[in-house]
Design a protein around this nucleic acid. Structure first.
Lengths: 134, 134
DNA sequence: ATGGGTGCAAAGTGTTTGCAAGTAT
DNA sequence: ATACTTGCAAACACTTTGCACCCAT
C-alpha cells in the first residue's frame, strides 16, 4: 500500500499548513475548492485520514467536529465554547502523567489529550457588551 | 421553562446511573428499551441533553461517540483505542492549570477535559496472544 | 388546564464508500 | 502497466426536529 503524493493530497496538506486555527474537514474543503473547484469532499476526508495515519498532520477532537492540526508534537488545546475557536494552549504536555495513568490502570498509555474549555477574549468582550456589569 | 420529571426521563437517568462504563446514547436507548419498549431515540437524546444541562449527568467526548457519566466532579478519563472502553482515570484534576491556561490566553476557562489513550489490559492481552513476543 | 414532554418519522450533519475512470510511480 | 486515487453520488451513523397527541404539575 505505497502512498502517492497526488496534486489533491498536496493541496489538502498545504491547506492545513496554511491555517493556524485548527480547521475542520469542511474548512479544508472550502479552502481547497478555491484552488481546485473540482475536488470532492470524499477526497478531502480520504486524504485527511491518510495524512493523519502517516503522521503528517494531527487530529484534534473538540465538541462539535473533528479538527486538524499541523503541529505534530503532543500539546494541549483551548476550545472556545462561544464561537468554537480552537488554539494551542500555553501549558506543557505532562508526559509523566501517561506513566502514572498507566501504572494506576494497567493500560498501555500512548498519550493523553487535554482541552481547556471557556470563552475566548473576543467572546468575553461580546458577552460583556450585551450583559454589562451592573 | 420548568422541567418535569417524567417516567421516561427517570428511566434515562436511572439507566445512566446503573452503568459504570460511560454509556453512549444508544447504550442507554437499548437499556431503557428493556423497561419501556415504546420509548423512542428522540426522547433518549432529548433527555440526555436536558439532564446534562441540569447538571444531573455529565457529557464525555471520546473519539467515536459521545458518552455519558454519572460522576459530576471534574475528573480525567481513560479511553481504550482497541475496544472503545471508557473509564475514570486515577489522576487528580489539576485545577490550577485552568488558571494558568486562563492567564496565558485571556480565556475565561471553565474547566479542562483530559483523556488518556491506549490499550486496556484486556486488549493488551488479546494483542499479546495474536502476536506473541518472539 | 396548560405548557412541557412523548412517539414517530422525516430531515439534518458529518463522514464513509462503491464504482468506473484517471494518474503517479 | 499497475494499483493507488479521484469525482460523484449513494449510503451511513448519529443526532435533531416538526407535529399532533399526552400527562405532570
Amino acid at each position: 500500500m505505497a502512498t502517492r503524493m497526488t496534486r489533491q493530497r498536496q493541496l489538502v496538506l498545504d491547506a492545513v499548513r496554511a491555517r493556524c486555527d485548527h480547521p475542520s474537514a469542511d474548512d479544508i474543503y472550502l479552502d481547497v475548492r478555491q484552488k481546485d473547484p473540482r475536488i470532492s469532499r470524499g477526497t478531502i476526508y480520504r486524504n485527511l485520514m491518510i495524512l493523519v495515519e502517516q503522521g503528517a498532520i494531527v487530529h484534534v477532537r473538540v465538541p462539535a467536529a473533528d479538527r486538524y492540526d499541523l503541529r505534530l508534537d503532543f500539546h494541549c488545546h483551548m476550545f472556545c465554547t462561544g464561537c468554537g475557536a480552537v488554539e494551542d494552549a500555553p501549558i506543557p504536555y505532562q508526559q509523566e502523567w501517561d506513566e502514572r495513568a498507566a501504572a494506576g490502570t494497567g493500560y498501555a498509555v500512548t498519550r493523553h489529550r487535554t482541552i481547556f474549555e471557556g470563552l475566548c477574549p473576543a467572546c468575553l468582550a461580546k458577552a460583556a457588551e450585551s450583559a454589562p456589569t451592573n
